[in-house]
Design a protein around this nucleic acid. Structure first.
Lengths: 209, 209
DNA sequence: ATGTAAAGACCGACTGGTTGGTCTGTAGTG
DNA sequence: CACTACAGACCAACCAGTCGGTCTTTACAT
C-alpha cells in the first residue's frame, strides 16, 4: 500500500485534474486521502509545495527520457523520432501531472518556478540541438529557423494534453506514429530519395487508401 | 476615452495576464480601473462573468476570421493557408485574451462553458473540413488521419501563446510563414511537382542558405 | 525479552486574514 | 421626479495554515 505522502499526491492529482488547483481545497484533498490537515502539513510545507512536487516529478521524467533517447541514437533523424515518441507517450503515463503542469505553472512562486524552468529549458534545448545537428549534417531542410521549428514541434505535442483520452479513437502509439510522420515530412527535404522514403514509412496508417 | 466597462476589461486583461485569474482580486481590478466595487458590479454580475466576456470576445473573433478565410478562397490549400495565417496573427492581436482563454477556461461554470465550447468546436470543425476536402480533392496526403492532423495543427498554433513576445526574434508574419510551410510540407504529397514547389515557396526564410 | 525514552507520524479544532459579493447612498442627467 | 452610473462601507463565507496533543514505531540499555 501507498504511504500517506504518495496517497495525497495521487488523490490531489485526480482532484486537480477535474477542478484545477484553485478549485480544490486542502480540506478536500485531506478528505479524499483519508487523512487530516495535520497529516497533510506533516508532509508538505504548503499547498504550493505539493504543486511543485507534481511539476517536478513530471518534468524530471520527461527530461530523463529525452536524454536517454538522445544518447542511444546517433542519427538526428532517429534521435528526433525517439524523442518525439517518448515525449508523446508521456501524455498517456502522466496525463494528470501534465494538466496541472501546464494549467497552473504560473502560480508557482519564484523559487519553485526557477527550478522547473531550468529543467524545462534543458529539454527544449535538446530538441533544438537535434534540429540544428540534423540541418548541419544535411538531413533536415536548412531553410527552417530551428527555434520556430522547435516551438512548432513542442506545441503540437504539448497540446495533446488538451484532447487526449485513453479511450479515444487512436492509441498513444498511433498518435506518436502520425505525429512523427508529420514532423519528418516537415523537416526532411522534399526531393524524393532512397533515404526519405525509407524513413517515412510508418506502418499503421499508411495502408489506408 | 473608453467607457468604464471596456476599461475594466482592458485592465483586468493586463492583470490576469501577469497573475492569472485567481491571482487577481476584484479589488485590484477596481483600483487599476480607477473605479469601485459598485462600478464593477454595475457592469458585471460576477468576477466569472468577466472571465466569460473575455473568452467570448476572443473566440468570436477567431471564428469569424476563419469563416471569412474559408469563404474567400476555393482551393483547400489556399483555405488552410489563409486560416492558419489569420489564426496565427490573432496571437499578436489578442495575446492577453488568449492566455486567459487557455489558462482559465476550466474555471468557467457549466452555463458559460457550453457557449464557449460550441464556438470553439465550430472552429475546430472548420479546420477538419478543409483537411478532408483537401484529401478528397487530392491535394493532401490521403493516408493522414484528419482528426490527428487537425489536432497537430491546432496544437502548434495554439501553443504560440506560451512563448510569443512582440519584441521577440521573429515577427508574427514570419512565424505564420514558417508554420504554413511546415504544415504544407506535412500535408502535401512527397512527390516533387509543379504545384507543390509553387505552393511551398515562402519568401522570408527561403533565401537563408 | 522488557522497559523506556525519543523521534516520527498523524489528528482536528481553531484562527486570522482575505475575498467575492451586497446594500445603501448620491451625483448627474433628461 | 425617475433613472442611470457609480461610490464605498460592510458582510458572511471560506480557506490555508497553526498548534497542542495523541498514537505508533524505532533504538537502545538492562
Amino acid at each position: 500500500m501507498l504511504n500517506l505522502r504518495d496517497k495525497i499526491i495521487e488523490q490531489s492529482l485526480i482532484l486537480f485534474d477535474e477542478n484545477g488547483f484553485h478549485g480544490v481545497t486542502v480540506k478536500q484533498i485531506v478528505e479524499a486521502s483519508n487523512t487530516s490537515k495535520g497529516g497533510f502539513y506533516h508532509h508538505f510545507h504548503s499547498k504550493e509545495e505539493l504543486l511543485f512536487v507534481i511539476h517536478d516529478a513530471f518534468i524530471t521524467y520527461v527530461s530523463k527520457e529525452a536524454k536517454a533517447a538522445n544518447e542511444t541514437h546517433t542519427s538526428p533523424v532517429e534521435k528526433i523520432q525517439a524523442i518525439i515518441r517518448s515525449f508523446v507517450k508521456v501524455f498517456d503515463l502522466y496525463k494528470p501531472h501534465i494538466s496541472v503542469f501546464y494549467q497552473e505553472s504560473m502560480y508557482l512562486k519564484q523559487e519553485y518556478e526557477q527550478q522547473i524552468k531550468k529543467k524545462r529549458d534543458e529539454f527544449k534545448q535538446m530538441i533544438l540541438q537535434v534540429i540544428e545537428e540534423g540541418q548541419r549534417m544535411g538531413y533536415f531542410r536548412k531553410e527552417l529557423p530551428p527555434i520556430l521549428t522547435g516551438m512548432a514541434i513542442l506545441g503540437m505535442v504539448n497540446w495533446i494534453y488538451k484532447w487526449y483520452r485513453r479511450d479515444g479513437e487512436y492509441s498513444i502509439d498511433e498518435i506518436a506514429d502520425v505525429f512523427i510522420d508529420l514532423i519528418l515530412h516537415s523537416l526532411l527535404p522534399s526531393v524524393e530519395g532512397e533515404y526519405r522514403s525509407q524513413m517515412l514509412t510508418i506502418p499503421f496508417f499508411y495502408d489506408k487508401k
